[in-house]
Amino acid sequence: MNIETKYQGTVEINDENIITFSKGIPAFEEEKQFVLLPLEEGTPFFVLQSTATTDVAFIVLNPFEVVSNYQIKLPDATLEMLEIEKEEDVATFVVLTVKEPFAETTANLQGPIIINVNKQKGKQLLLSDTDYQTKHPIFKEAALQTTKEGK
């Protein structure tokens, strides 16, 4: 099936790659089906693209790649809803707020997107009991990690 995407024009996708968000994503509750597409070859960024609405697309990133101590505990209701049986079933992403210049881009660590990669089911969690920010600067953390590791 072909879909129109916000960043990559017309893209052919496999029905098996469609991720269903049964309750949508907060503020986009009517959007139930998305596909995860690489933003650009060789980068850690992805696009969570609605299959129905071209303009509904989020730049996302695996938070564990940029925030060394990022941890979340999935509530039992989420495990049940997404039919998660083991840790390997889970992919976690955070939505980025892309800024100009790009080095000032931030990540919403309070609202991770959880995907059961085997069942293609997703949900955005809204963490309330946390010190994580909605506008976490991702490049400052990455620069600090690189400096500490001596790279």
Rank of each mutant, 00 (worst) to 15 (best):
M1I: 10
M1Y: 07
N2H: 01
N2T: 04
N2R: 01
N2S: 01
I3A: 02
E4W: 02
E4A: 12
E4S: 11
E4N: 12
E4G: 03
T5G: 06
K6E: 15
K6F: 14
K6G: 14
Y7P: 03
Y7N: 15
Y7E: 11
Y7F: 15
Y7Q: 13
Q8I: 05
Q8S: 11
Q8R: 10
Q8A: 09
G9K: 01
G9Y: 00
G9F: 00
T10R: 00
T10D: 03
V11I: 09
E12P: 00
E12W: 00
E12Q: 03
E12I: 01
E12F: 00
I13L: 02
I13N: 03
N14C: 05
N14Y: 02
N14L: 05
N14E: 12
D15I: 04
D15F: 00
D15K: 04
D15E: 10
E16T: 07
E16V: 03
N17V: 07
N17G: 06
I18M: 13
I18W: 12
I19Y: 05
T20Y: 08
T20P: 07
T20A: 11
T20M: 11
F21Q: 13
F21N: 13
S22I: 14
S22K: 14
S22W: 04
K23A: 08
I25M: 11
I25E: 05
I25W: 01
P26E: 08
P26S: 05
P26F: 05
A27Y: 08
A27M: 05
A27F: 06
A27V: 11
F28P: 10
F28V: 14
F28D: 13
E29L: 05
E30F: 06
E30S: 15
E30L: 11
E30C: 06
E30P: 04
E30K: 15
E30R: 14
E31I: 13
E31V: 12
E31A: 13
E31Y: 09
K32F: 07
Q33R: 13
Q33E: 15
Q33C: 12
F34A: 10
F34L: 13
V35P: 03
V35D: 05
V35K: 03
V35S: 04
L36P: 03
L36E: 12
L36W: 08
L36V: 15
L36Q: 10
L37E: 11
P38I: 07
L39Y: 10
L39C: 09
L39K: 12
L39D: 06
E40L: 13
E40V: 13
E41W: 03
E41S: 08
E41Y: 04
G42N: 02
G42E: 04
G42F: 01
T43F: 00
T43L: 01
T43C: 01
T43E: 02
P44T: 04
P44S: 06
P44A: 05
P44V: 05
P44C: 02
F45I: 07
F45K: 06
F45A: 06
F46D: 08
F46G: 01
F46A: 07
V47Q: 05
V47D: 11
L48P: 01
L48Y: 02
L48D: 07
Q49D: 14
Q49H: 10
S50T: 15
S50G: 14
S50A: 13
T51E: 05
T51Y: 02
A52T: 15
A52M: 15
A52R: 15
T53Q: 14
T53G: 06
T53I: 14
